[in-house]
């Protein structure tokens, strides 16, 4: 069979030239934030252990946290936590059998992204206020 006469068949996505759909990006982001939060969880456990040690060691540990880099990490942790949390709720709805239509999944995806951004800003604002 010549190339021209070959019947049209669906091609699998070629990752180097394929623009990932929004749903795929969110799926990857869920796993990426999950991995980041696991590492972040170890870091938070370390923070508690430093608080149980001596003031000097704790101060050294905290000096990174109050730096610009530390603030960026905190912001990244908050966004990761809220994105993973809201997207996790989206997963729970899927587990229960709701929201599988592509249109619904895209809409819930955008809601998750918006909610994560709002919650990140809100928790930062509330946290600073309670400080």
């Amino acid at each position: 069979m010549s190339v021209a006469n070959r019947p049209e068949r669906p091609l699998s996505p070629h990752l180097q030239v394929y623009r990932l759909p929004m749903l795929a990006i969110l799926s990857i982001l869920h796993r990426a934030t999950g991995i980041a939060l696991s590492v972040g969880g170890l870091y938070l456990a370390t923070w508690v252990m430093y608080a149980a040690s001596n003031p000097r060691a704790y101060a050294l540990f905290q000096s990174f946290n109050v730096s610009i880099a530390g603030r960026i990490v905190l912001g990244g942790w908050l966004f990761s936590a809220f994105f993973h949390l809201f997207n996790g709720i989206r997963h729970l709805f899927w587990d229960a059998g709701y929201g599988f239509e592509i249109k619904d999944a895209e809409r819930s995806g955008w809601i998750v992204v918006a909610a994560a951004l709002v919650a990140t800003a809100a928790s930062w604002a509330v946290g600073l206020r309670l400080m």
Binding site: A81, F82, G88, L92, G127, M131
Partner: peptide, 24 residues
């Protein structure tokens, strides 16, 4: 555990910002 973490993480996120500059 995901369901249990929903309220815990919201509480903890706010606490974390609150304590981000806390001394010993």
């Amino acid at each position: 555990t995901a369901i249990a973490l929903i309220p815990l993480v919201v509480w903890f996120a706010i606490s974390l910002v609150m304590l981000s500059g806390a001394d010993y």
